[in-house]
Structure formats: C-alpha cells, structure tokens
C-alpha cells in the first residue's frame, strides 16, 4: 500500500453563526488515489475541503498531510503540498492576465524569475492554454476559465489536488476534456486527487474510491460498493449513473446481466459478453414481474 497522503481524524467544525457543518469526520487517502467526495447540497463538502489546506481550522480533530500535522505546518509548506481549485473560477483568477495568474503561485513560492517563467510555460503547454497568456479572464469562456484556474494551481506542482465541483456548469465537451486532464495528471504525475462532485455520471471515470459525506462520513468504498448500497443512496439523496439505471431497467425486461455497468465503457464490454454467451443476440421481453420490478425501480430513485 502507498503512503498515506491525507489523514483526517474526528474533525468537527461549527461556523461562527452556530451551523454545525462537520461532525466527527474521518478520512484516509493514499498517495496517488483518486477520491470522489459526494453528498447532497449543504452536506459540508466545501467546508470540509477548506480544511484540507488549513483555510478553516476545525474546533476538534486532526488532519495530517503526508504524515505531518497540518496545524504545525507553515503556510508555504501547506500551499506547496495541497493545491485547491475552487468552484467559481472568477474567485480564483484574480490577476489581470492568465500569465500573471499562473505565475502568481510560483512567485509566492519564492522561485527565481526564470524558474517561474519555465513553470508557467510548462503548465500552459500541458493544459493546452497556449495563446491565452496575455488574455484577461473576462475574455475567456467558462470552460477556459476553469482550465486556467486548474493551471494556476498546477503551476505550484502540488502533490495533492483538491477540486470543488470541477465539472459543474461545463458544456459536455469541456466537461469531457477536464475529466481527461484530471485523470492524466493523476496518471502521469501521480497526483493524489480529492474531487467534490455532483456529477454522478463522471464518478466511474474519476473515482478509485468514494467518500459519502453528510455532515459526517456516511460511507466509503469503490463506486460499485456505493452505487449498490440502495439504503445509503436513498437516505442521503444520492444519485447513480444513468447507464447503471438503464441496465437495471433492461434487467427488469429480462436482460441476463450479472454485473451492472457504471460507465459506457463497461456497458459496451458487458453487452458484448452477454451477446457472446447467449449465442449472438440479446433477448428482452416483458414477463409477469416486469411491471412490479419497474415500479420498485422507480420508487428507489424517488427521493421524497
């Protein structure tokens, strides 16, 4: 097993106005893992995230980053280890041009001028932002701003990257591109990822492991563990990928499918396998239980 990158023990946090946003939260993330944090609106996901780089400090509990107590780490040290991509890129792109913004972090790390330039150039290339250097954020599309804010954090070369709803409000193409970039950074550079998202269809592509948060951690496991835990999903108003739902329906119509797919890729290989074993075709029909099963299926996803 890899080294522990993030350890959170018994973390609690109360906002000054008395809102108990987190209670006794625990989490363990290993180096190189991709963790997705899910939870309904107001579950405390953003609040939790803000603890991971010391922006907020819990009233109780402890956080360790690569074995070091966060409380005892210096600001520069934390910032070097944990990069944070905020939800609204306008909060994050505060400099007049993209170049200045990407250079901002490295300058704060105390790098020399030519090193800063080198980093900026490298980051711009690796995120496909060439030609945007001198542009102002207000001339960029939302998707471009999102990429630029990721670049601004990546230029600091953190070992852990925390992203708050990275795919929210993106058009399908930018969304796919961003998911690709996140996975590539994980694969190529071994960056540990903590991704907060509502985008259930993206989870199978993004998660090695899921943590479900609702003020406290209510479950953890592989996407498969979580998506098969009907009670947990229902109690916490969590959704499952569309492909998964579709195959549940197909199963009610008699599809002989043992392992429900979570992503389109899995669906393709799963279907191919079924067709092969069934002798060249698949067989769907309405049988006596179909309507009951569909009814059950519906009620499972009605969160009232």
């Amino acid at each position: 097993m890899n080294q522990e990158a993030i350890t959170v023990k018994n973390l609690s946090y109360k906002y000054p106005d008395g809102t108990k946003a987190l209670e006794d939260v625990n989490m363990e993330v290993y180096e190189g893992e991709r963790i997705v944090l899910v939870g309904p609106n107001g579950a405390g996901k953003t609040t939790f995230m803000l603890h991971l780089n010391g922006t907020l400090r819990g009233s109780e509990g402890q956080i360790e980053i690569f074995g070091k107590n966060l409380e005892k780490m210096k600001r520069e040290e934390i910032v070097k280890e944990v990069g944070m991509v905020f939800q609204d890129p306008d909060d994050q792109l505060f400099m007049p041009t993209i170049f200045d913004d990407i250079a901002f972090g490295p300058i704060n790390l105390g790098l020399k001028e030519d090193e800063v330039r080198e980093r900026v150039e490298k980051t711009i290339l690796s995120l496909g932002l060439s030609g945007y250097e001198d542009k102002s954020p207000h001339h960029l599309s939302f998707g471009e701003k999102k990429k630029a804010s990721l670049a601004a954090v990546m230029a600091m070369e953190p070992r852990i990257l925390v992203l708050d709803e990275p795919t929210a409000n993106l058009d399908p193409r930018s969304r796919a591109e961003l998911i690709g970039i996140i996975n590539e950074l994980n694969e190529r550079e071994g960056i540990t990822m903590v991704i907060v998202t509502h985008d259930v269809n993206a989870i199978p592509e993004l998660a090695d492991r899921i943590y479900a948060l609702n003020r406290t951690m209510i479950g953890t496991g592989t996407p498969r563990d979580i998506f098969f835990n009907g009670a947990l999903l229902k109690q916490n108003k969590l959704d499952v990928p569309d492909v998964f739902k579709l195959f549940e329906v197909l199963r009610a119509f008699g599809l002989n499918c043992e392992k429900l797919p979570l992503s389109l890729d899995e669906a393709v290989s799963g279907l191919a396998k079924i067709i092969e074993t069934e002798g060249g075709h698949i067989h769907l029909h309405i049988h006596e239980h179909t309507h009951d099963e569909i009814g059950e299926w519906r009620s499972k996803y009605e969160h009232h």
């Binding site: 922006t55 070097k80 905020f86 300058i107 704060n108 600091m156």
Partner: peptide, 22 residues
Amino acid sequence: ERGDRVYQALRARGYTAKPKTL
C-alpha cells in the same frame, strides 16, 4: 462574500500581501 472566497483562493496559493508580477 466573493471577497471572502477570493481571499481564501489568494491564501491557497501562498499570498502574503506582497505579490510581485514579472
């Protein structure tokens, strides 16, 4: 509120109130 969030983002990238630009 945005001011608050921008400040958090500034701090998250090591802002120390004396930024320089190249």
